[in-house]
Design a protein around this nucleic acid. Structure first.
Lengths: 185, 185
DNA sequence: TCTTTCTATGCAACTCGTTGCATAGACAAG
DNA sequence: CTTGTCTATGCAACGAGTTGCATAGAAAGA
């Protein structure tokens, strides 16, 4: 499991509350690791009782109070140890691919709209990543000499961008294939 | 959930036992949907008691008997209905990306070996996919006029190939970044 | 002969992840 | 003044997925 570790990395980058973490998991960290707020709250509790992170009650005006978490010494050790352990290369879970193969036993043309929808979603995601890259790394306001953390965040984001571009090209290929099949029926 | 649907697709392509399905989930279908044999046996049981699939006891010599499953009419309906429902575009789960961002708080150079290991694994997977493509789709023994099912299987495999190529290029980018960071410490 | 490997199926326990629901203060729009 | 939205936290129940273990016949190799 790596949700704990993803949270440790995020809290090292910047301490925050469960709510703030769940927002980060909708962007930034969430580009390559997803989690719902319920999951995050549950895991934060366990991490705190295990001494990996510290809590600080922060009163706020015009808002409910929050609990700000930060990484404790033990949490740093846990993360460091995990970083030195090998992990398995990812295995994919691509529901759309199951559908595409399933289309052979149904109407392939009926899938076109669905694939177009996915194409649009990935186009949006790519635009979002590129805007983030310009804002934080390649634009005029970006740091001229990025530190290690920024360079590593950038290379991860470049991975997301490459993934979306590859996916869009593949979805074009899928659409071509479905359209070629369609008229024959 | 789509394990049921992945199993339906696989059984439509060719009926088989739980054991055979679990082997297919290590190749072919497993390229984009993973499942362990325990998961498969459990789901097969539920699908059978729900009337989605039929069982046939097949005695074998030199081997334990097996239960061969095939898709029932109800299963075809269920699959067809699922194919017409929209699904969410995939969200990624990339443990290595968490590690890379985490490396900012540890020794980036220590990750190089790990990334190289992943590079090797993806190189192997790509070679495996390309061999499968040559065998089934582009080689001399491939069908000259592939049917719809074969064309759809091929486009899914092309997706796997594109994914591996993209990943390898990104891992090269990651290695460059880590090596540039290393000497500065 | 003994160990290992392959085919073949399955239970039990556990962890991970999702979904639905609940609470509660503050603010904005209608 | 009511409804909706945003911040903020959490419980309970369920479903999905993993890990460990067990059984059992046959073949292959040491």
């Amino acid at each position: 499991m790596a949700l704990e570790h993803a949270i440790l990395v995020s809290l090292l980058e910047k301490p925050g509350s469960g709510y703030e973490l769940s927002r980060r998991f909708e962007r930034s960290i969430g580009y390559f690791w997803t989690a719902t707020h319920q999951q995050i709250y549950r895991v934060l509790k366990r991490m705190e009782s295990d001494g990996w992170i510290d809590v600080r009650e922060v009163p706020q005006q015009a808002r409910p109070d929050k609990k700000e978490y930060s990484v404790a010494a033990l949490g740093r050790d846990v993360l460091s140890q995990w970083l030195h352990e090998p992990i398995e290369p990812e295995s994919v879970r691509h529901e759309l691919a199951v559908k595409i193969r399933g289309a052979a036993f149904d109407d392939p043309a009926a899938l076109i709209r669905e694939v177009e929808r996915h194409h649009q979603a990935h186009t949006d995601r790519l635009a979002h990543y590129l805007a983030g890259e310009r804002r934080d790394f390649t634009g005029p306001k970006a740091p001229a000499t990025p530190d290690a953390g920024q360079q590593l965040q950038h290379v991860v984001l470049r991975g997301g961008i490459a993934y979306e571009r590859m996916t869009l090209a593949w979805l074009d290929d899928v659409l071509d294939t479905l359209r070629r099949l369609g008229p024959e029926r």
